[in-house]
């Protein structure tokens, strides 16, 4: 069960500003029924003052999606469009006394609906999905959105990105891509903090790491070709293995061993050598 604050519960059970504005000046629509949540935001805007005089919403989604929508409509009222655009997803979450980590994407959806509505009103092109490269195919999330949300909310891990955008929360195939986006995004500021270079490992850590790499990265691909590998021993930087199954006597076995050596040199230490028994 989610730990919702009393404010979230209240906004869910008695949401404010529910419904449509038939003669709305701006409409912002985000999400889809397939993804599990969708929000349609209606704004009434006074042309003279540029202020939002009324806001209503329709939301398909869980308690926090409905509560975030209610909070959003409360927050934007009586604000000019520029003031409204200052409202971040964090402001929406704060208004509700916070959201569970895994539900932060609900506040992001609110912010997106607001952007979409104001862009429509101003006649700006509504940002198309195709504009950025699609990273998460399960939830239709582009790299551009991941970068934007990461910067706005100071997100550094893939799990945080999933909580805020849902990206990576489906099949999980794009998690390495998200990782790459994050390291790309934050590397500039990090280079100065920690010097690059392989971490110094103790012998035990090194043995464990080599075992893990062989078990998770080498073995499955050999087994896919009906081969197999056994780790015999590790003496200092010398890794001794035995090839099994179809690998035994395979003409390509030297190449296989070189490949394993390259992988271990990259991931463990440049001094590693791999030999067969």
């Amino acid at each position: 069960m989610w730990e919702y604050t009393d404010k979230v519960k209240e906004a869910f059970l008695k949401p404010q500003n529910v419904g449509e504005i038939p003669d709305a000046d701006a409409v912002g629509e985000v999400g889809s029924i397939v993804c599990g949540d969708a929000l349609k935001l209606f704004l009434k805007i006074d042309k003279a003052s540029g202020k939002i005089t009324d806001a209503k919403f329709q939301t398909f989604g869980c308690a926090s999606a409905i509560a975030s929508s209610s909070a959003l409509t409360e927050l934007v009222k009586d604000k000019t469009l520029d003031e409204a655009l200052e409202i971040s997803n964090i402001d929406i979450a704060d208004y509700l006394g916070g959201l569970p980590d895994q539900k932060m994407h609900c506040s992001v959806m609110g912010r997106e609906a607001l952007e979409a509505a104001i862009a429509q009103y101003r006649g700006q092109p509504v940002r198309q999905k195709e504009e950025g490269r699609l990273v998460c195919k399960c939830f239709d999330v582009t790299g551009e959105k991941i970068r934007k949300v990461a910067v706005e909310n100071h997100l550094t891990t893939v799990d945080e990105i999933t909580n805020f955008t849902k990206a990576g929360g489906g099949c999980g195939e794009c998690r390495p891509d998200i990782e790459a986006i994050l390291s790309d995004l934050w590397s500039v500021s990090r280079v100065h903090e920690t010097p690059a270079g392989p971490r110094k490992l103790t012998n035990l850590q090194k043995i464990a790491l080599i075992q893990e790499i062989i078990e998770t990265q080498v073995r499955p691909s050999l087994q896919a070709d009906n081969g197999d590998i056994e780790l015999i021993d590790i003496e200092g930087d010398k890794v001794i293995v035995a090839l099994r199954g179809m690998c035994t006597g395979c003409l390509m076995s030297d190449v296989t061993i070189k490949g394993i050596q390259a992988k271990l040199r990259e991931l463990v230490s440049a001094a590693i050598t791999v030999e067969t028994r």
Partner: peptide, 25 residues
Amino acid sequence: YVEGEAILLRLNEYQICASSGSACT
């Protein structure tokens, strides 16, 4: 057209316990 977690939490107000296959739960 409605989401399961929202239904469950409304039912919860009446102390009715059920479950859902929705993503949010």
